[in-house]
């Protein structure tokens, strides 16, 4: 595919999305959403207000904590399960089925354990984001080609050298994929937490907008969240692909 055709197709898709958006507005009216251009303008205005940033900082800090905890804990658990094959085989399907349960029902438990406030949100983000990181890391370690380890042994690499030159490069791409999925799910967890029970944060802004019929606010905040999520995901995806296609 030529580059120009790619740009053209991308532009067409974007225009199609805007057309659907405008169409929805025509159909459902201003009680449901605001049209694209007005929303973008309001969103830009919103980004200039300190009130918005007060909420955004709350969300971003809870989000950053839950990503950090998911990453460190997830990679550690994944490496451990991967290194002890039996533990890994026992744990993998259990984790996979934990991944498929509606974790939103567990939010009240988080609230009861951690109280209202940022820690419950962070914990809720972690239970969403942790599992994919563990599963991807575990898969990466399990699927290291044995020939790599044999080569390391035959070259008499020390354990540290083996880790540095063989193990880390072999598992890094998969772990990056896991972190990307974990990143998105942490955001989902934190936002749901704020939508359900919180007085601060982006999720609260959305729910507050709904309850006070402030359609302008809800649509603009939704747009900001989508742009942030898609932007961050695209950047991580590009990084992910570079790691996977490295020689």
């Amino acid at each position: 595919m030529s580059r120009r055709q790619g740009v053209l197709d991308g532009t067409l898709i974007l225009l199609a999305i805007l057309a659907v958006w405008q169409g929805l507005y025509q159909y459902a009216g201003s009680a449901a959403l605001t049209p694209p251009w007005a929303t973008v303008r309001y969103a830009v205005d919103l980004l200039g207000t300190p009130n918005f940033w007060g909420h955004a900082t709350q969300t971003l800090s809870a989000f950053a904590w839950s990503v950090a905890i998911s990453a460190v804990l997830g990679i550690a658990l994944g490496l451990w399960f991967g290194a002890f094959r039996f533990a890994g085989d026992v744990a993998e399907p259990m984790l996979a089925s934990l991944y498929t349960i509606p974790k939103v029902t567990l939010y009240p438990v988080m609230l009861l354990l951690f109280g209202l406030g940022p820690s419950a949100k962070i914990a809720f983000g972690v239970i969403h984001g942790l599992i994919p990181v563990v599963l991807f890391t575990l898969g990466a370690v399990k699927n290291i080609r044995p020939v790599l380890l044999r080569t390391a042994r035959s070259l008499r690499l020390s354990p540290i050298q083996t880790a540095r030159f063989v193990l880390v490069p072999a598992v890094l791409p998969e772990i990056a994929s896991g972190l990307r999925v974990g990143f998105s799910l942490c955001l989902l967890g934190v936002l749901i937490g704020e939508m359900f029970a919180s007085q601060r944060g982006i999720g609260f802004l959305i729910i507050n907008g709904i309850n006070s019929h402030n359609v302008k606010l809800t649509t603009a905040v939704t747009l900001i969240v989508i742009v942030f999520a898609v932007g961050a995901n695209s950047a991580l995806l590009a990084l992910d692909r570079r790691l996977h296609h490295r020689g």
Partner: peptide, 20 residues
């Protein structure tokens, strides 16, 4: 679009769906 679909917390669309 498919690659970044699941990165968007889908529940932000709920108010729109209720309105629709």
């Amino acid at each position: 679009l498919l690659a970044s679909y699941y990165s968007v917390p889908i529940f932000v669309f709920y108010p729109l769906l209720v309105a629709l």
